[in-house]
């Protein structure tokens, strides 16, 4: 279990959003402010790590035929826990993310990692996998948020640095459509293109070095 290698994979070469193309619904929907992005990213990281650990603990006990249903129940349990705790202690974030918190249950990343990794590896490795993949998701969300907020609202760090964020682009100039669905699709498309280009370059470099 090489932490550095798994971290590199989680953040870049096997980034859940930009390379594996999972979990796009939430990436497109909530990345309109840094507050949302950080909140969602950290929630998914926590849920992913916890469910990875539990599923890895139970991997020898769960019969194969019902494993998907069992994973879903375990993941739904953690999601509801995070949902309730957020409503009680972070009500503004809960309001902002809305229906996308319970929808973390069907975030393909979590079920995907449970099936592909946690069900076949040790608890320690699964925990590390949860953290690294979660960080990859968080990184993708943060980049999306910064780009969309800057171009669409002209601010940076709305909800995090201050209620409105630091204004970088003056009032009438930001392109409002970046905060709307159009902007989400366009930004993610360009980001994935960039990631694909970067990964290919890294692979070519490695192949040339061999």
């Amino acid at each position: 279990m090489n932490f550095k290698k798994q971290l590199r994979e989680g953040l870049l070469t096997q980034n859940p959003v930009l390379v594996q193309l999972l979990g796009m619904c939430s990436t497109l929907a909530i990345t309109t402010s840094l507050f949302n992005g950080l909140g969602m990213g950290i929630s998914v990281l926590v849920i992913l790590t916890c469910s990875n650990v539990v599923i890895s603990l139970l991997r020898k006990v769960i019969p194969s035929k019902i494993r998907i249903a069992a994973y879903i129940v375990i993941i739904a349990g953690f999601v509801t826990m995070v949902d309730l705790l957020m409503q009680a202690f972070l009500p503004d974030l809960s309001n902002s993310l809305g229906v996308f918190i319970p929808l973390i249950v069907v975030n393909c990343i979590i079920l995907g990692r449970a099936e592909a990794f946690a069900s076949k590896n040790t608890v320690a490795a699964s925990a590390v996998d949860g953290v690294t993949q979660g960080l990859g998701y968080l990184a993708a969300l943060v980049v999306m948020c910064i780009v969309r907020e800057l171009l669409g609202n002209g601010t940076f760090g709305s909800g995090v640095l201050s209620a409105d964020g630091a204004r970088i682009i003056a009032e009438p100039y930001p392109a409002l459509m970046m905060i709307l669905p159009v902007g989400g699709f366009l930004t993610l498309g360009c980001l994935i293109a960039f990631a694909q280009w970067l990964v290919k370059k890294l692979n070519d470099k490695e192949a040339a070095a061999k």
Binding site: V182, G184, F185, L186, G189, C190, I192, A193, Q196
Partner: peptide, 8 residues
Amino acid sequence: PIALISAG
């Protein structure tokens, strides 16, 4: 990527 841009 181009599919996402079309969707946009």
